Computed example of a mutant assay.
Amino acid sequence: MVEIKRKDLETPARAGTIASLSVGEVAERAGVAVSALHFYEREGLIRSWRSAGNQRRYPRGVLRRVALIKTAQRLGLPLARIAEALATLPADRPPTAADWRRLSASWRDDLNARIASMAALRDQLDTCIGCGCLSLDACPLRNPDDDLRHTGAGPRLLP
Results as ranks from 00 to 15, higher is better:
Ile129Tyr: 04
Glu3Gly: 15
Pro140Asn: 01
Thr151Phe: 08
Gln73Lys: 14
Arg102Leu: 07
Val23Pro: 08
Pro95Lys: 07
Cys139Val: 01
Arg142Val: 15
Glu3Asp: 14
Leu89Val: 02
Arg65Lys: 06
Thr71Gly: 02
Asp145Leu: 14
Tyr58Lys: 12
Pro159Ser: 13
Ser20Gln: 15
Asp99Leu: 07
Leu68Met: 11
Arg65Pro: 05
Tyr40Asp: 11
Ala116Cys: 06
Val62Leu: 04
Ala27Met: 07
Tyr58Leu: 13
Ser22Glu: 05
Arg101Tyr: 01
Arg114Ser: 12
Asp146Thr: 05
Arg47Gly: 08
Val2Pro: 03
Arg29Ser: 02
Trp107Thr: 12
Gly152Val: 10
Leu21Lys: 00
Ala113Ser: 09
Asp137Ala: 08
Pro155Asn: 10
Pro94Asp: 00
Ser20Pro: 03
Glu28Lys: 03
Glu10Tyr: 00
Leu68Thr: 06
Leu89Asp: 05
Arg122Pro: 00
Gln55Gly: 08
Ile82Asp: 05
Pro78Ser: 12
Leu45Ala: 03
Leu158Phe: 11
Arg14Ser: 15
Cys139Ala: 06
Leu86Arg: 06
Asn54Pro: 01
Arg65Ile: 01
Ala87Leu: 03
Ala105Glu: 10
Arg122Met: 02
Val23Asn: 04
Trp107Met: 13
Arg142Gln: 14
Thr127Pro: 05
Pro59Cys: 09
Gln55Tyr: 15
Ala83Tyr: 05
Arg6Gln: 11
Arg29Gln: 09
Arg64Gln: 14
Cys133Gly: 15
Ala72Leu: 15
Gly76Val: 03
Arg56Ile: 06
Lys7Pro: 00
Asn54Trp: 09
Arg42Gln: 12
Cys133Pro: 06
Leu134Val: 13
Val66Pro: 06
Gly44Ser: 03
Gly154Leu: 11
Ala113Lys: 14
Leu75Met: 15
Val26Ile: 13
Leu111Phe: 12
Arg81Trp: 02
Asp126Lys: 03
Thr127Asp: 07
Arg60Asn: 11
Ala119Trp: 01
Ala97Phe: 05
Gly53Pro: 00
Arg81Val: 12
Ala33His: 13
Val26Gln: 05
Trp100Ser: 12
Arg47Tyr: 04
Ala105Trp: 03
Leu89Pro: 08
Asp126Gly: 08
Ile69Gln: 11
Arg108Phe: 05
Trp107Gln: 15
Leu121Trp: 04
Arg60Ala: 15
Ser22Asn: 04
Ile82Val: 15
Leu158Ser: 12
Ala33Gly: 09
Cys128Val: 00
Thr127Phe: 00
Leu125His: 00
Leu111Arg: 15
Lys7Met: 06
Leu158Trp: 10
Gln73Leu: 12
Arg29Val: 01
Ser104Trp: 04
Ala116Phe: 07
Ile115Ser: 05
Glu25His: 01
Ala15Ser: 15
Arg93Pro: 11
Thr88Tyr: 10
Asp123Arg: 10
Thr71Asn: 04
Ala91Asn: 04
Leu75Glu: 08
Arg101Glu: 12
Thr151Ala: 11
Leu158Glu: 12
Ala52Pro: 03
Arg56Asn: 10
Leu77Glu: 09
Gly24Cys: 01
Glu84Trp: 06
Leu89Lys: 00
